[in-house]
Simulated assay, not measured.
Amino acid sequence: MDYTTQDLWQCYQSPLFLLTQSLSSNFSFAIITAHNPTAMLLSPSQNRLLDRQLLREIELLGSPYRALVGAAPDLSHMEKSWAVFIDRTMALQLGKKFNQYAIYIVEQGDVSLVPCLLHGHDEVCLGKFSDRVRLVSELPDMRN
């Protein structure tokens, strides 16, 4: 494992989730993005295309979902994401299909970082999901 993936894994452990409405901790769900597959920074238009493809896949599942933004604590990096009310197996399949190193799983109010394509790492519990949420009146524009 090189320094880059180790550094990414550390960054993934301090997410902030921007939501327009709170999500109940009574339900389990996954947080998945299609942005920047395998940590390769893509253009906004490329990320929007991948996001639309992911949304189509989510809609085909017929499960409830909600848009959100996963961000670095200082908002220096943001990715459009989806809270999807599906089981862990389906969530990991989606994460792998969209070439994501990891996804987040929320169970019983706790959020965990779960590796998809990033091998050599174990799942990490990051604590209460609610502690990592910032409610906003609208999600940031991801066109920049």
Results as ranks from 00 to 15, higher is better:
Asp74Gln: 11
Asp74Lys: 11
Asp74Val: 13
Asp74Asn: 15
Asp74Met: 08
Leu75Tyr: 14
Leu75Asp: 06
Leu75Phe: 12
Leu75Lys: 14
Ser76Asn: 15
Ser76Leu: 11
Ser76Gln: 10
His77Pro: 13
His77Cys: 09
Met78Lys: 13
Glu79Tyr: 08
Glu79Phe: 10
Lys80Leu: 13
Lys80Ala: 15
Lys80Phe: 12
Ser81Leu: 07
Ser81Trp: 05
Ser81His: 04
Ser81Glu: 06
Ser81Phe: 11
Trp82Ser: 02
Trp82Ala: 05
Trp82Met: 09
Ala83Gly: 10
Ala83Ser: 03
Val84Gly: 04
Val84Ser: 07
Val84Ala: 04
Phe85Arg: 07
Phe85His: 12
Ile86Gln: 02
Ile86Asn: 02
Ile86Pro: 04
Asp87Asn: 09
Arg88Glu: 04
Arg88Cys: 11
Arg88Lys: 15
Arg88Ser: 10
Thr89Arg: 09
Thr89Gly: 08
Met90Trp: 07
Ala91Met: 08
Ala91Leu: 07
Leu92Tyr: 01
Leu92Pro: 00
Gln93Asn: 07
Gln93Val: 04
Gln93Phe: 00
Gln93Arg: 04
Leu94Cys: 09
Leu94Met: 01
Leu94Asp: 01
Gly95Val: 07
Gly95Lys: 02
Gly95Arg: 05
Gly95Glu: 02
Lys96Ser: 12
Lys96Cys: 05
Lys96Arg: 11
Lys96Ala: 10
Lys97Met: 06
Lys97Pro: 03
Lys97Asp: 03
Lys97Ser: 14
Phe98Gly: 00
Phe98His: 06
Asn99Thr: 11
Asn99Gly: 07
Gln100Arg: 05
Gln100His: 03
Tyr101Lys: 11
Tyr101Glu: 05
Tyr101Pro: 06
Ala102Gly: 07
Ile103Val: 11
Ile103Lys: 00
Tyr104Val: 08
Tyr104Gly: 06
Tyr104Ser: 06
Ile105Thr: 11
Val106His: 01
Glu107Val: 13
Glu107Pro: 09
Glu107Phe: 09
Gln108Trp: 08
Gln108His: 15
Gln108Cys: 13
Gly109Leu: 09
Gly109Ile: 12
Asp110Ile: 15
Asp110His: 15
Asp110Gln: 15
Asp110Cys: 15
Val111Ala: 10
Ser112Trp: 06
Ser112Val: 11
